[in-house]
Design a binder for these strands. Structure first.
Length: 465
RNA sequence: GGCAGGAUAGCCAAGUGGUAAGGCCGGGCUCUGCAAAAGCCCCAUGCGCCGGUUCGAUUCCGGCUCCUGCCUCCA
């Protein structure tokens, strides 16, 4: 099987608002930065929709032969983390450690590939201070009377190029706290926040006095620290586009005079019952909530990944149930070909190459996962038919390995525990003796234990439900 | 108000200037002691509404209606 698909990867770039051929700065090397979670509570499934988008993006890049260095940060200092740690009577570090651990657990549950680096903001304050220093030197930032430092938006002519918001039009709104700013103009944003009593012992020394970094500067500093001053790709949720990413661009390009990221990608929101998830609506679910309802991580992964990332996705429990059935279709198909003798697998069969080609071509088109999945199900169907007829099939294990490197659905291990196997053997014996009553009772018992019995031409099979 | 994205079968969701992928649900068949499971087959003259361009539009253009998000620290 050829190493790389021939199709050229095209991605939507929020900066140009067009789908364009993706070309990193250096051959096939990609520096990818994804904005990570603020670790003050459990991430919800809406958060994971965008992290899953980042994961899919990474897997697709690999699929197309790119060598990806992936960085995702943890925001472990901000108003919410400070408030949370104080409420819990814990240090900021201990408090955020716990939610970082929870987040990593959820990542594993959803089979997100771990990033190459997962830096936390509080480990990079010196880099942030240095970056702010560069901006102050260049006249792009200024210290206000209280020891905070702000970015001077007016000094950067192309500020607003990502969000295409008119900076003149940025006006105070209801969502701005009234008391905290001593800024030259409304659009200016905090790079460094002077210490306030509410911050407790959370503070770092800086040339401008005791304080803590602003939100946006974290990502600029960490991204540049690990990936250099120019990134190939920067991704995150659509709501980060403004102000967060706009401000990252301003800080980074203001300091370096070079383009910060060549391509920006943003995923649309996850909706629940047609609305954005929010605590007040009571429609906010965590990965644990989904697990508590009996669904697995891979079922959730499938639901969150199956629609195009730039399309808002409406989450419903019905979809999760449908995902379970759809996934079992794939599982059953895998079970079938795993039982095949090696001689039945013909690597050179054209249907295999045709499928892989169609699958890749769909993915190459700005991650058209729905199209790719459609091809997968077509292929499952087609090869099932071949197996029905006892005809040779393509090298399914090798094909699936490539496909699943992108989808991350995995193969369900079907290890049958000894006690289940024993019940199965008992039922087999009962059937042989034509003791239908006993064999039906055993079937029910197995069913209650979560195993379904399949009587097929090959004999009895035990499959976990 | 500004910016952005939508509206495709009961539900979810691709896609195309030439007559609608895929998944779920539903119906049928095969298999079977009976079931279940699994597999196979079928399932939108129709793509929000009104005009226009075209031999032909769901796909292009114009208008309209409705939905969702962003507009300073929410993925």
């Amino acid at each position: 099987m050829s190493a790389e698909p021939s199709a050229e990867l095209r991605l939507y770039n929020s900066l140009t608002r067009a789908v364009e051929a993706f070309r990193p700065r250096v051959d096939k090397k990609v520096g990818l930065y994804a904005c990570g979670p603020t670790v003050y509570n459990h991430a919800h499934i809406g958060n994971f929709r965008s992290f899953l988008y980042g994961d899919l993006l990474r897997r697709v890049l690999r699929h197309f032969g790119f060598d990806v260095t992936s960085v995702m940060n943890f925001t472990d200092v901000d108003d919410k983390t400070i408030r949370g740690s104080r409420a819990a009577g814990e240090s900021l570090r201990i408090f955020t450690d716990r939610y970082i651990a929870e987040f990593r657990r959820d990542m594993e549950t959803l089979n997100l590939l771990p990033q190459d680096v997962q830096p936390r903001a509080t480990d990079h304050v010196p880099e942030m201070i240095a970056l702010i220093g560069r901006l102050v030197e260049k006249g792009l930032a200024y210290a206000s009377g209280d020891g905070s430092v702000y970015f001077r938006v007016a000094a950067l002519p192309d500020y607003g190029k990502l969000s295409r918001l008119d900076k003149e039009g940025l006006k105070p709104g209801a969502r701005v706290a009234q008391d905290e700013y001593q800024k030259e103009t409304f659009g200016d944003f905090a790079l460094w926040k002077a210490w306030s009593p509410d911050d407790g012992d959370v503070a770092w020394e800086s040339p401008w006095g005791k304080g803590r970094p602003g939100w946006h500067i974290e990502c600029s500093a960490m991204a540049m620290h690990y990936l250099g001053e120019e990134l190939d790709l920067h991704c995150g949720g659509i709501d980060l586009l403004f102000p967060h990413h706009e401000n990252e661009i301003a800080q980074s390009e203001g300091a370096t005079g070079r383009p910060f990221a060549r391509c920006w990608g943003h995923s649309a929101h996850l909706l629940v019952d047609g609305q954005k998830m929010s605590k007040s609506l009571g429609n906010l679910f965590t990965v644990r909530d989904v697990e508590a309802k009996g669904y697995t991580g891979r079922e959730l992964r499938y639901v969150l990944i199956k629609a195009h990332y730039r399309q808002s996705l409406n989450f419903t429990w019905d979809e999760l149930a449908a995902a379970r059935v759809a996934l079992s279709r794939i599982d059953n198909w895998i079970v079938r070909w795993k039982a095949l003798p090696a001689s039945a697998l013909t690597a050179a069969l054209p249907v295999g190459a045709a499928f892989l080609n169609a699958f890749s071509e769909a993915l190459a088109d700005d991650l058209n996962i729905s199209g790719a999945l459609g091809h997968l199900f077509d292929f499952v169907h087609e090869t099932n038919r071949l197996m029905d007829k006892g005809e040779p099939v393509p090298d399914l294990p090798a094909i699936w390995e490539k496909v699943d490197a992108v989808l991350g659905l995995g193969i369900r291990t079907a290890e049958v525990p000894p006690e289940i196997a024993a019940l199965g053997a008992e039922r087999l014996a009962a059937r042989a003796a034509k003791d239908w009553k006993k064999s039906d009772a055993l079937r029910q018992q197995l069913d209650a234990l979560g195993w379904s019995v399949r009587d097929s031409a090959k004999g009895q099979e035990l499959v976990r439900k």
